[in-house]
């Protein structure tokens, strides 16, 4: 989508909102869980069959649900946590039968791998990492990236998980001397890893060698950007960022997601598309997820908004349902579904 100025999107795109096709196909709620903090959909082997399962997390339990006929769900296993609450689910993109979770109070204190029972044994929790963990991301090839500490005492590592859920191999990445906020994988480049930093940079590592390849300053217009995904194309990196701290009073509307193009050779970058809210729609980015060319976000207003990143245009809006604001939103790792959750534990599948 060509634009006149770097960093600015087509202004009319923000005005012309056309509701998209989000169709509710299923709902699930765990009667034993009073709240929910996260959801994920991934493949799991259930009785020898590869099933598209849903994983839900409330403060002190993570549950695995298998699909039944007619879009119903049956809980088949739960992992309980008694001491430290669950903060988020950390799925590993191409791994079946295992999911990771981050536990902590406000900041992540532990990362654990969860496995189902087998051969009469109990389900397993394997401690993978502990400490003051700033950021975590599940990567392809059974790898998990995490960072702990800040600035000079920062440690960035990638562990490869064994079949048993434990750590098989650990590699330290060269620290960027700027606090890592979020990681993003580069689609199509399994040996590259990106991170956004507290000093408004995007850093690039070589995962095979641990080398820090580049630090690209992306400007000070937006603080504490979250990087979600990156795509390598024709010598450029296209990076999807979201902006929890963006002002609501920008001329083109409230910016939520931004697609930038970065030349890793020259460290120059430019805006490609700005995804902002339709005029009159209040709110800032609270949390969200990106899959392919679709980005979804829960806004501070309690609404979920979906954009087509290639068009920089809102594709759908999902106002609070049953009088309750949305708390989190995730794209399914198994199908073209959007999973939206509410604090009371209700999960809606669109």
């Amino acid at each position: 989508s060509p634009v006149q100025q770097p960093g600015m999107a087509d202004a009319p795109a923000c005005d012309s909102f056309v509701p998209g096709d989000l169709r509710l196909v299923s709902r699930l709620k765990d009667p034993s869980a009073p709240c929910a903090v996260d959801v994920s959909a991934l493949w799991w082997d259930v009785a020898g069959l590869k099933e598209p399962c849903i994983v839900t997390a409330c403060e002190y339990a993570v549950s695995l649900w298998k699909p039944l006929d007619t879009w119903q769900w049956e809980k088949i296993y739960s992992w309980d946590f008694t001491e430290v609450p669950v903060l988020q689910i950390v799925p590993l993109p191409d791994v079946r039968d295992l999911v990771c979770v981050a536990l902590g109070n406000l900041e992540i204190q532990e990362i654990r791998a969860l496995l189902c029972p087998s051969d009469g044994e109990a389900g397993k929790q394997v401690l993978l990492s502990s400490g003051h963990i700033q950021a975590v991301l599940g990567l392809t090839k059974r790898r998990l990236a995490s960072s702990r500490g800040t600035l000079c005492d920062q440690q960035v590592e990638v562990v490869t998980l064994a079949e048993s859920g434990g750590s098989k191999e650990k590699r330290l990445l060269m620290p960027p001397e700027e606090t890592v906020l979020t990681f993003a994988e580069v689609q199509g480049m399994q040996d590259a890893l990106l991170a956004s930093t507290a000093a408004n940079s995007i850093v690039i590592w070589n995962l095979k060698t641990g080398q820090l390849l580049r630090k690209v300053h992306i400007g000070d217009s937006y603080q504490a950007s979250v990087c979600h995904k990156a795509y390598s194309e024709m010598g450029l990196l296209f990076v999807v960022l979201s902006h929890p701290c963006a002002k609501e009073s920008e001329p083109a509307g409230s910016p939520v997601f931004r697609l930038i193009a970065m030349n890793p050779k020259t460290t120059l970058s430019a805006g490609v598309a700005l995804c902002c809210l339709p005029r009159g729609q209040p709110g800032r980015f609270l949390e969200g997820d990106v899959k392919g060319n679709l980005a979804a976000a829960v806004l501070t207003s309690g609404t979920v908004a979906v954009w087509n990143l290639l068009l920089g245009r809102p594709a759908a809006l999902l106002p609070p349902a049953s009088g309750q604001s949305w708390s989190f939103v995730k794209w399914s790792g198994t199908h073209s579904h959007l999973l939206a959750g509410q604090k009371d534990g209700s999960i809606f599948v669109y």
Binding site: V3, N206, G210, Q211, M262, P264, K265, T266
Partner: peptide, 23 residues
Amino acid sequence: CSQADLGPISLNWFEELSSEAPL
């Protein structure tokens, strides 16, 4: 954005940067 905004582009940037960066 046009390519001119971003300077010369290399399709092998990952390999080139890996050969230059300190280990």
